[in-house]
Design a protein around this nucleic acid. Structure first.
Lengths: 140, 140
DNA sequence: CTTTTTGCAAATCTTTTGCACTCTA
DNA sequence: TAGAGTGCAAAAGATTTGCAAAAAG
């Protein structure tokens, strides 16, 4: 039994859902629902925009994809390894590296507890310019 | 010369801007532009919603206020201390505590370096429910 | 008087929702 | 066939923008 199987639970494997999942499987970076919808159109796999939104939300709730808010407020999605982690994202090309920091998790929880906060969660993203992009940009 | 004076630059000190700045001075938590606009209405300092948005954006650009995206994607603002720090924010009332984590800063930079990223920055926010809000909600 | 600001409404844009219709189990 | 899932268009919200009127230097 994989966690994926159990997480999908009672969701029916429809053409649309399969298409969205396939799309996610083919991309490595974070993409907005709109972009994923556009990608599906490109592939001639017509899926309504609302359905894309609903499906991504479902997958996200099920923990099958990571979602994070881009700087402009749009929600973006990416397939993920199911455990808790953060991302190192390139400003230039959007490439994302999953990173883990157990110490940070503990630190955040401890800080919150110190202040009497409960039901704690946190967001942590690291932004930078990857080697490839730095090289390209420096080419001037 | 204070950094504030220079940062304000050529902005004209209008009634509306003064009102927004006063409002920010009187609150400690992160508030959305809509909430700040509502607060101003309460104080009978009528300022157009668009003006509130424009002013907050201006102040944010000038580095006079912190802005961060709430979990629901709304942009929220708060007066800020100018040094680098993060926040522990209550989901219920928006109360915010500034926190510092030198170790996290170093960890983030190290991770990025390990992956060859340069020009690194990061975002880190901790969300939770503060004691007061937890008590209220649990009041059942 | 010239330039910056404001207000208001209309326009954008992302995301959600209502509902009738379609498809799966 | 019943219930889950979908499409489309309308609705909701937050934020931005166009433009004429008002205020500041």
């Amino acid at each position: 039994m994989t966690s994926t199987e159990s997480a999908i639970g009672s969701l029916r494997p429809t053409r649309q859902r399969t298409a969205v999942i396939d799309a996610l499987a083919s991309i490595v970076d974070f993409r907005s629902a709109q972009e994923i919808h556009a990608l599906l159109e490109t592939r001639e796999a017509h899926v309504g925009l609302a359905t894309v939104y609903r499906t991504l939300q479902l997958l996200s709730d099920a923990g099958l994809v990571d979602s994070l808010r881009a700087e402009d407020g749009e929600l973006t999605y990416r397939r993920c390894s199911s455990h808790h982690h953060h991302h190192l994202v390139c400003r230039g090309c959007g490439a994302a590296v999953e990173v883990e920091g157990p110490a940070v998790e503990r630190w955040a929880d401890a800080i919150a507890e110190d202040h009497g906060f409960v039901d704690v969660s946190h967001t942590l993203e690291i932004f930078g310019t990857c080697t490839a992009c730095a090289t390209t940009a420096a080419g001037s």
